[in-house]
Simulated assay, not measured.
Amino acid sequence: MGDSNQDRYDGSTESIDREICALIQKRKQLSNEQTASPTPEKLNEWAHTYELEKEMLNALFSTIESEGDFKPIVKPKGYLGTVPLSLFHEENEIIYSLTAIQSYKNASVLFFQVASNPQKQNLQEPMRTFELTIKGTTSYVTQLTGGSGGDAMFNHRFVISPAIKEDVTISVRERFGEGECVTPFEWKVDKQALIMNK
């Protein structure tokens, strides 16, 4: 069996590698841990300036944005109830909606649906992925934990931790294949619409 890249690591770049980690942490702090990718124009510019491949840079920033995907999946515990939601956004004959939220003691679970005209759009060509971000005074981790659907409708399940207990802005970004995120939109939601009334 051949040596892995880790086996060949001799420490000659350790100081630079540490600096890369420190810069990623600083980036998170400056952005208030909200995801945001450089524009394609910026990626082109930096790829040319630093003699790097644009797709590699795009993959790098996409990975940085997706830190929550690498964290252990939070298992919701202490079910409190389910609240129906009626939050919609329509664009290019596609309807995006938040249909319900389940409240738990340690997390919230949001159900997100995408529906299109099956005669005009196939939601699987190209394959679409969605990033959901919760903005408030608390730092939230959002994890996609399930999904299903077909050509004209998709349903997604997101676990949010900790549980939402304040007014928040829920942002959605859509990605086509490996390309940059497009179709950003958001909902400003009052906590009373998200929390079970006792």
Results as ranks from 00 to 15, higher is better:
93 E>W: 05
77 K>S: 15
71 K>R: 15
82 T>D: 09
75 K>V: 13
106 N>P: 07
67 E>F: 13
65 E>L: 06
94 I>D: 03
66 S>I: 01
128 R>Y: 05
122 N>S: 04
104 Y>S: 08
81 G>V: 08
86 S>A: 09
71 K>L: 13
108 S>A: 07
73 I>P: 05
117 N>L: 09
52 L>S: 00
116 S>A: 14
62 S>I: 03
108 S>F: 02
97 S>D: 09
58 N>E: 10
105 K>R: 11
81 G>A: 05
95 I>V: 10
59 A>M: 05
63 T>K: 08
89 H>W: 03
82 T>E: 15
97 S>N: 11
68 G>H: 14
117 N>T: 06
65 E>R: 07
126 P>F: 09
98 L>R: 00
64 I>C: 15
113 Q>M: 10
57 L>N: 03
123 L>W: 04
79 Y>D: 10
97 S>G: 05
94 I>R: 12
116 S>T: 15
118 P>F: 09
102 Q>K: 13
68 G>F: 11
117 N>D: 15
96 Y>P: 02
126 P>V: 07
89 H>V: 01
96 Y>H: 07
59 A>H: 10
53 E>P: 00
93 E>F: 06
123 L>Q: 06
53 E>L: 10
89 H>Q: 10
101 I>D: 06
105 K>M: 12
120 K>Y: 00
80 L>N: 12
55 E>T: 14
125 E>L: 06
122 N>K: 04
124 Q>C: 03
67 E>T: 10
53 E>K: 07
93 E>N: 14
83 V>M: 14
101 I>P: 06
61 F>N: 01
57 L>G: 08
57 L>S: 06
123 L>P: 09
104 Y>L: 06
71 K>A: 13
124 Q>H: 11
126 P>H: 08
80 L>Q: 05
111 F>P: 00
59 A>N: 14
119 Q>G: 02
84 P>Q: 09
94 I>A: 04
88 F>K: 02
62 S>N: 14
92 N>S: 07
125 E>V: 06
79 Y>T: 06
94 I>M: 09
78 G>A: 08
98 L>D: 04
115 A>R: 09
85 L>R: 02
115 A>I: 13
110 L>W: 01
57 L>H: 02
85 L>E: 12
